[in-house]
């Protein structure tokens, strides 16, 4: 098995047992994997528990793109990022968890920034609809914060 593997390639095994052959430079964008490789405690196959094949494939896609386009125009990468993170809540949740757990900083930042954009400048009403799927009794506009939160007595 290991002999047939090209140099500088690693195998990542997802929680549901699927294997991905990935260049080492791409894999080590995950700090967790990087530490394993550096400590030489990684065999050729690195298990990635808690991350299923579907999500792992997405993470690899992201890392590959970021590895390739280091020299490319930053704007291209930005477009890619914004398209990449534009996903449903469930996928976002899984991706954020994976990025956090495997310590992939660029991916975590891109995902968190995307969620932040959902909140930015929105009223609580809008955020609730986006996050929770339902709204508060009262529509609180985004300026409520200046007036209500500060000037009311809270009992």
């Amino acid at each position: 098995m290991s002999s047939s593997l090209e140099k500088n390639m690693l195998i990542l095994r997802s929680s549901d047992g699927e294997e991905f052959i990935v260049p080492e430079v791409v894999a080590v964008m995950s700090k967790a994997i990087k530490n394993m490789v550096e400590d030489e405690c990684a065999s050729n196959t690195i298990p990635v528990p808690n991350v299923d094949a579907n999500i792992l494939a997405m993470v690899i896609e992201f890392c590959k793109k970021h590895d390739e386009s280091e020299a490319e125009a930053a704007s291209d990468l930005k477009t890619f990022d914004s398209e990449f993170v534009n996903r449903g809540q469930e996928a976002l949740y899984d991706l954020i968890t994976a990025a956090n757990f495997r310590d992939v900083k660029e991916l975590l930042d891109a995902l968190c920034q995307n969620v932040a954009e959902m909140i930015k400048g929105k009223s609580v009403h809008h955020i609730r609809i986006q996050f929770l799927g339902y709204q508060l009794f009262e529509i609180l506009t985004s300026n409520f914060i200046w007036n209500i939160w500060c000037d009311r007595d809270f009992d």
Binding site: C112, Q113, I119, K120, V124, F131, L132, L136, S142, I145
Partner: peptide, 19 residues
């Protein structure tokens, strides 16, 4: 916290009403 750190404090505080 990481998500909220991308936002102006005005938006951050507003999330206290989410749940």
């Amino acid at each position: 916290h990481h998500i909220l750190s991308f936002l102006p404090t005005k938006d951050v505080v507003a999330t206290c009403l989410l749940s």
